[in-house]
Design a protein around this nucleic acid. Structure first.
Lengths: 222, 222
DNA sequence: CACACTAATGGCACTCGTGGCCAAAAAGGA
DNA sequence: TCCTTTTTGGCCACGAGTGCCATTAGTGTG
């Protein structure tokens, strides 16, 4: 669920024509400030347009909807996710490979963590955004489904690829919820804990009341 | 994901006052006819109000939003889900108990299946509704989380209850997708197949290219 | 330098979902 | 008949989203 507001705006095809008046990043930052100040619902597109210094109409040329703003340019970061998956060794068990890629995708440099947290808190606690996010999740799942389909010789539409994608999302969302609930939590540990919890749940093994403290599961410690 | 449009409208507290002009069921049926005729987005609330023979303003006293109409009175059916879970034997492994309850919750009399299919197709293929449905799913998940919390002596907010709820939803959604894709599929078999697929995925066991034909997993054949 | 060309901007008008407010309607009961 | 109760539905206002199009601000060319 990494998002990406600090990405360089891609160059235009030609240097001709009126220059752009703003950028995805600028809109996003202005909007985010307003969201945290007076809340998502109480911030109108007029407010954002005014804060960014552009016309309201222009906002829609950068983001499809108000709900899309907090996600930033998520489509671009999915490219990175695709590469992380493709980079996993083929001899790794499928579920380990997927899990490692998910963990890597959600690894952030320490200085980017506060803003990441703020962004995810906004997305995961604002009802309108919770709802809208499923459309983003669908893209994320498609990346996983595609990888699983390739590795197992199936179509991304088959049951297993879809299933793995859905379950991976379930694990990630669970970990994110727990992460937001605990200031000191480490997201990667929670992703591991979620996977461990699932294995325990399905294996019928007694599940520890607390997740293994700092227990690594399948990924290298950083 | 059972919904319930054919439920009897609950009686009012007193017999006094102006009588109601419509019912959830009536609105739902009129709306559904319009949705299938010209699509969800192209059907305005004015259309639905006119078809129901009621003022537009009144619709909002029966449904919180346009998006809520296709779900019918889902809140009421969750009561039944809660009971199904509570009715599972305590000595059953947790994941088996949850799975059986989910399967039972999604068992429909044969004559109700076409409309159930239509309804779920509408919900699962209309982007606005896909998005809105997460709020319904959250209620559904809360029921599972509560059950898991009780059986494992935790809080519904703990990692494991949330995790089980999320994963159960992932399994159900996967099964529903496959169900809608195949006219002849049996939903309960697909729920089983999804669970079997998950076990295979995590166990690293070779997963059959096709789900075990008609293979039962943990629930009694009907 | 003037002129065409190009691409982004932003104002305007419109539809639609949603919610607050309140008078009118339609029953029952005294 | 009049009062009470409860629902209805009209009116209005706000905000998101969209199509249309004149305007703007650059680049490239003679």
């Amino acid at each position: 669920m990494l998002t990406c507001g600090d990405m360089v705006e891609s160059a235009r095809t030609s240097a001709r024509g009126r220059p752009v008046a703003t950028s995805h990043a600028a809109i996003e930052q202005a909007a985010f400030a307003l969201f945290t100040e007076r809340g998502f619902a109480s911030t109108t597109l007029d407010d954002i347009a005014r804060a960014t210094g552009v016309g309201r109409r222009t906002l829609f040329r950068y983001f499809e909807s108000k709900n899309d703003i907090p996600w930033g340019r998520f489509d671009l970061t999915l490219e990175g996710f695709r590469e992380l998956l493709a980079g996993q060794p083929d001899d790794l068990p499928l579920h380990v490979a997927v899990h490692r890629a998910v963990v890597a995708f959600n690894r952030f440099p320490a200085d980017a963590r506060p803003s990441h947290r703020d962004r995810m808190r906004l997305i995961l606690t604002t009802p309108e955004l919770q709802a809208h996010s499923v459309l983003r999740y669908a893209d994320w799942r498609a990346v996983i489904a595609h990888y699983v389909a390739e590795r197992t010789g199936r179509t991304p539409d088959d049951l297993l690829p879809r299933l793995v994608a859905q379950v991976s999302l379930a694990l990630a969302l669970t970990a994110y919820d727990a992460w937001l609930a605990d200031e000191d939590a480490v997201l990667e540990d929670l992703l591991d804990a979620a996977m461990a919890g699932l294995l325990g749940y399905l294996g019928g093994a007694p599940v520890a009341a607390t997740p293994p403290a700092g227990g690594s599961w399948t990924h290298d410690r950083r």
